[in-house]
Design a protein around this nucleic acid. Sequence first.
RNA 1: GCUCGAUUGGUGUAGUCCGGCCCAUCAUCUCGCCCUUUCGAGGCGAGGACCCGGGUUCGAAUCCCGGAUCGAGCACCA
Length: 507
Amino acid sequence: MKSILEKNAPELLEKKVKEKRTGLPDLKNAENGKVVLRFAPNPNGPLSFGHSRGVVINSEYAKRYEGKWILRFDDTDTVRKPPLPEAYQLIQDEVQWLTGKPADKVVIASNRIETYYEFASKLIKKGGAYVCTLSADAFREFRQNKTNSPDRSRSPEENLKLWEKMLNGDFSPGEAVVRIKTDMTLPNPALRDWPALRIQDTENNPHPRNEIKSKYKVWPLLDFQSAIEDHLQGVTHIIRGKDLMDSTRKQTLLYNHFEWTYPETVYWGRVKIHEFGGFSTSGMRNDIEEGKYRGWDDSRLPTLASMRRRGFSAEGLRNFWIELALTQKDISASMATIYSHNVKIIDESTPRLFFVREPIEINLENGNEEIPRVFNTQVHPEDIKLGLRKWEISKENTTIYLEKKDLELAKNNNYKIRLKDFADIEINGNKAKINSINPSEKLPIIHWLDSNNCTKATLETTIEDELELIHGMLEKSNHVKVQSIVQLERIGYAKLEHENELIFLHD
RNA sequence: GCUCGAUUGGUGUAGUCCGGCCCAUCAUCUCGCCCUUUCGAGGCGAGGACCCGGGUUCGAAUCCCGGAUCGAGCACCA
């Protein structure tokens, strides 16, 4: 059989060789050079770790299809989710850091309110939308009963008048809303005459941007604003959470009124990180204002700012999200996976350094051998090009530091231990003598410091959701600049945040 | 309740459209070994999964029917 096929129809055999796909799936109907994507966070705080998924996925697709992606600030709720003025810039900085370049375009919804008004007017004129003066509760009845409300039958002219009254401020919040006319008998209740624009009390809840403040009383809701803007910007593909599936359906109904074609849409599920509890942007904002956290970059917070501060590499984060790919499953990932991605990026270029926690002073004396005058080892064990760590060691009154914990380790080993890259020693009280330079027997190897070649330093870390400051001695090094990542041998990776101040990254 | 959607090892994925080469991929994880003067990195090996029940078929992770479980929407939030 096979040989017959080989002879007569070899393509049938070849077709069976399936290629394995990794990373992001292809986008449907994606034409190279023509793809336009967007990511639309609410600027009520800087980006959370979860948001970074949106930035990474959209920018990666834009790169793959040589298209562009728009960063859009959906800042249309001044009451419940008031924007944070500084977030607009913070988010753009974070995007730059994460993707290595700015978004291709930035759109701020609150700058475009009048444009949204135009489309609302147009649709009301066409009879595709109407002003509804029912209360939310009253309308709910009609939605549940699949019956038309009396307001629904008003003529476009009457609706236009009411719309003008809304804009003029003749209605208070809750008294009038613009609804998109769909069909009250639609099986999905979420789609029945859904609300598109509402009134907000911007006297008491002004928009935080100075140029906006109390300028508008009527504000579009997400489904309307987003749909109009996507069309105006020529968005071809929308990647959004599956919680917005009904938004797609609502917006498609709106697009039908205008006879526009809706973009291709793909969904992702929720992502939980085992180690992070439930955090919301507004919750974090409260806690920060109350002083519970030191800021958005507090290392206990699941924000991009925090991860960036701790020293995560943007590339590692990107790889993490790409590997998670795009599925509608609600997923629960572990920090271990993120660490693993990060280590792959940083390990080969990260200088090694000794940091002795809770240092105990020991006087080092000559023993079977004299104290060597120099300590010499590589900055990176696998890469000599990164240079050498070299200390001059005084031969008189030589004081070294060992970790308290390592003293216990030595105790369990007849007080004999090996100082890494240096010598075997035997400890006796606060003194130690050198037994041999070369490793004479298999001893535990510990890191250590010479008092003339180190300085006091602190390591900030998180233990059970509390910030801890570990005091210790840090090796002096001219290979490590402030803000760079180091590996504290036998401890883990950390960032030298300031002179003599380290912040723990991960182990 | 109504309406959507998802279901592959501990975790995340590939494969599902167009059934066989899938005794199921890759990564993470765990364990073992090697290497290494770090509890790091690297190398090698092992462990572990097609939600359940029927059906169609020579053959089902893949198709059909039923069920279960989980999640989301039904806000004048985003």
